[in-house]
């Protein structure tokens, strides 16, 4: 049980590195189209005897059938550490194409799109969490420390944000902002929206801690000894807040990743050609996709891995926090 936290942390770091270097790990760019292979199923990877080499066959589109057939006349070896123009972790020689998760309607590699999309969604979640916690901590500490009028004003304001189902608020706020933006701008916009909506809950938590914390004896003592407000906040109150904020982060990141996914799923998030987990899942809303192309579910299933590691992490952190508190 003691190992859960470090193990979870390692997994989490591993996953993030995976997505951070998705440009290298993914065999293709997220936008690269193969117009001869729209909606191709995942490439079958054949093993030749017990060799570590793997062979793959090129796809042939049939005019009559919606499916693809393997063209076994030529084999393409899957190479590791490809170095040609861009370097990639693995790849096949040119007319051949390896798509582990199949391709989408424009013949783009779903596996690459998953990696790029997960990077976008994850980092949107992390940045939004950071923003929400930063705002929340600042506002919560101000409210808790100064009390009275400042406190009640800020907390009423927080309640305004808590008074709305977040998904409604998300939709409404997204609707009023300009939609004419490049994917990068949209990305930051989403981060700001999600973060700016999310500050209220951590602010209330932090305020509670500060309220109880500033009555602690050593804080009172420091105050009597003439410590300045800033000093007390920085040296005595902030350390008490850290643990809570960290545990909150592990809880909030998956929530905010989900928020980004939901917005993109509803068509209000990052647009073409950038991939996001929400976009990828959104494709499944099309009847012909969900009924004909099972591999379009793969990104959704892979996504569970991310959420699982965050879940383990949040659990372990909370248990630890409880342990400290007791």
């Amino acid at each position: 049980m003691k190992l859960t936290l470090p193990l979870g942390l390692l997994t989490l770091i591993g996953i993030h590195l995976l997505f951070l270097f998705c440009g290298y790990i993914a065999p293709y760019d997220e936008a690269q189209q193969d117009r001869m292979a729209a909606f191709a199923p995942p490439t079958k990877v054949h093993l030749a005897r017990s060799y570590p080499y793997i062979y793959v066959c090129a796809w042939n589109a049939h005019e009559t059938d919606s499916g693809y057939d393997e063209d076994c006349s030529q084999k393409f070896a899957v190479h590791l550490f490809v170095n040609g123009g861009d370097s990639h972790l693995f790849g096949v020689a040119s007319p051949g194409r390896i798509s582990l998760f199949g391709t989408d309607g424009l013949g783009r590699d779903q596996f690459s799109r998953f990696l790029f999309g997960a990077r976008l969604s994850l980092f949107a979640g992390i940045l939004a969490t950071f923003l929400a916690l930063l705002l929340g901590t600042l506002i919560g500490m101000t409210a808790g420390f100064y009390g009275s009028f400042v406190d009640s004003t800020l907390m009423r304001f927080a309640e305004l944000f808590l008074a709305l189902p977040w998904i409604y608020l998300l939709l409404a706020v997204r609707a009023f902002l300009p939609l004419h933006l490049s994917p990068i701008q949209t990305f930051f916009l989403l981060v700001v929206i999600i973060g700016a909506i999310g500050w209220a809950r951590p602010a209330r938590l932090v305020r509670g801690i500060v309220l109880s914390g500033k009555e602690r004896n050593f804080v009172l003592a420091a105050k009597n000894l003439g410590a300045s407000n800033g000093y007390i906040l920085r040296r005595h109150i902030l350390p008490q807040v850290y643990g809570v904020v960290l545990a909150q982060a592990a809880l909030l990141v998956p929530q905010y990743v989900l928020a980004e996914i939901t917005l993109s799923f509803l068509g209000l998030g990052v647009g073409e050609p950038a991939a996001s987990l929400g976009n990828l899942l959104g494709e499944l809303q099309q009847y012909h996709v969900i009924s004909s192309y099972w591999w379009m579910f793969l990104p959704g299933i892979a996504l569970l891995l991310i959420f699982f590691s965050y879940f383990v992490m949040a659990n372990a952190l909370q248990r630890r926090l409880k342990f400290i508190a007791v």
Binding site: I261, T262, S291, F297, L303, L304, F307, F311
Partner: peptide
Amino acid sequence: TTTLLITPDILIALVFLWVALR
């Protein structure tokens, strides 16, 4: 519960849509 907890409701909905269609 853990499985359900880490599965976004979007995915649950899509899977059931698929099941219903199938």
